[in-house]
Design a binder for these strands. Structure first.
Length: 417
RNA sequence: GCGAGCGUAGCUCAGUUGGUUAGAGCACCGGAUUGUGAUUCCGGGGGUCGUGGGUUCAAGUCCCAUCGCUCGCCCCA
């Protein structure tokens, strides 16, 4: 029986949910297009090195969180855990750094070997954008504005707030890290077990700790802003000023950090309180060091990604779709006619449900259940006079129409649901 | 990987201190109505009670293991 279950953390996407995914994805693609971002797709697996190289050997991520396996030739492959590394590899492989700046939108499944939680799965789906080749704050603001516009268009429920922070440039960040490590070392005995480990592996992440004891220490911890050099300061101020100019509201969260070394300057997250512990709906930042770290020419980049599963949980209104019209033969004698009328109407752009089987009552019942707007009823008596019945499911009225002028008679039944 | 809670029909759930043949609503299928949907009435199919083991005269109920789900921790690229 175990084999008939989906693998832990994966799930089937049935039509209702799929419509929602497509709605979000299509809307995102179209808004991205307004900003000049073109949609691309990279493979859903890469040589493991693509991801390992970007992550370094530091964290749990490589050992614990990736879907890594060997293929038949012995190559180590990894199902992509996120989009940026693949896009970066694509840019290097195709020599696209000749044509900077590059603006890409992508969507598709991602894989992480994690324990499932609310809005968090082993196979999940993301949309994302990357803007490469621009080291000025305009790029950061462009991608944030795009994200903001998308969330607004989606009319997502829950209080979504934009939190933003700067991680500074490399010099500032190293300086701050040193100060932070010193501070926490002085209070080592008060740190949680997890955070003592983080002190060595990833000290900035302590600022994100949920442990109440840690949080007290964090409140009094040195703040990043004070250790920014002037370049970092000017950069962040410029991002904020431009957001103000666009009337995009944000909250500066000095504790907002990123785990990996290639991140710098802007980091941002759109968060909601409606999803428990998994409150980040859309997150991104500047990753100027990434492409160089992967072995390409030093190329700045900034982008974000958002999970469709989480976004879906926040969508209030169902996406609409065109209601179909049913073509219903009364008896088997009309089946051939029905299928040819159905196809003709489809060629003219109508959504047509052909009633395949059952008596008239059942066919109508089924058409009704499929939320058809109307039914074209093909009965022997009417057809002899060159007519068909048209039943309006909303009003309950039924009228006759010329078979030859069917298409125009159906025009008024174009509606969404 | 760690912790807690939960697994009874497609869905939501009931099932007494362990006691005969495991129930309801919704959904589905059929009929009333073989040329007219939603309403109504009548009927029907569906379950190895997540799985395996144990205790017991007797287990959906108690115990152990395992799988899964949910929420949280770690991690969050």
């Amino acid at each position: 029986m175990a084999c008939l279950q989906p693998v832990r953390g994966t799930h089937d996407i049935l039509p209702k949910e799929f419509r929602l995914h497509r709605f979000i994805g299509d809307l995102a693609a179209s808004i991205a297009e307004r900003f000049g971002f073109e949609e691309i797709e990279t493979p859903i697996f890469e040589f493991s090195e693509v991801f390992e190289r970007t992550l370094g050997d530091t964290s749990d991520i490589v050992t614990k969180e990736m879907y890594t396996f060997q293929d038949k030739s012995g190559e180590s492959l990894t199902l992509r855990p996120e989009g940026t590394a693949g896009v970066s590899r694509m840019i290097i492989s195709n020599g696209l750094t000749q044509k900077l700046p590059l603006k890409y939108f992508y969507r598709g499944p991602m894989f992480r070997y994690e324990r499932p939680q609310k809005g968090r799965y082993r196979q999940f789906h993301q949309i994302g954008v990357e803007l490469l080749g621009i080291s000025q704050p305009q790029a950061d603001v462009e991608v944030i504005a795009l994200a903001n516009m998308l969330l607004k268009a989606l009319e997502v429920s829950g209080n979504i707030t934009l939190e933003i922070n700067t991680l500074g440039n490399l010099v500032s960040r190293n300086h701050y890290r040193k100060v932070l490590v010193d501070y926490f070392n002085d209070h080592r005995e008060d740190l949680s077990e997890d955070s003592i480990l983080r002190l060595d592996k990833n000290p900035l992440r302590i600022l994100d700790s949920k442990d109440p004891g840690d949080r007290k220490l964090i409140e009094r911890a040195p703040i990043f802003n004070k250790y920014l050099d002037s370049e970092s300061e000017i950069f962040f101020a410029s991002v904020c000023r431009k957001l103000d100019a666009l009337s995009i509201s944000y909250h500066v969260n000095e504790r907002l950090v990123r785990g990996l070394d290639y991140y710098g300057h802007t980091a941002f997250e759109f968060k909601t309180d409606a999803l428990g512990a998994q409150g980040t709906v859309l997150a991104g930042g500047r990753y100027d060091g990434l492409i160089a770290q992967m072995g390409g020419h030093d190329t700045p980049g900034v982008g974000w990604a958002a999970g469709l599963e989480r976004l879906s949980l926040l969508i209030k209104k169902e996406p609409t779709r065109k209601r179909p019209i049913a073509i219903i033969p009364v008896a088997t004698e009309q089946h051939d006619l029905a299928i040819s009328i159905a196809n003709r109407m489809r060629e003219e752009g109508y959504n047509i449900e052909l009633a395949y089987q059952g008596n008239l009552s059942k066919r109508l019942k089924r058409a009704n259940r499929l939320s058809c707007r109307a039914a074209v009823i093909l009965g022997g008596d009417e057809l002899e006079r060159g007519k068909v019945g048209i039943r309006d499911f909303d009003s309950g009225e039924q009228m006759e129409a010329e078979l030859g002028a069917l298409s125009s008679s159906l025009l008024k039944f174009n509606s969404d649901c």
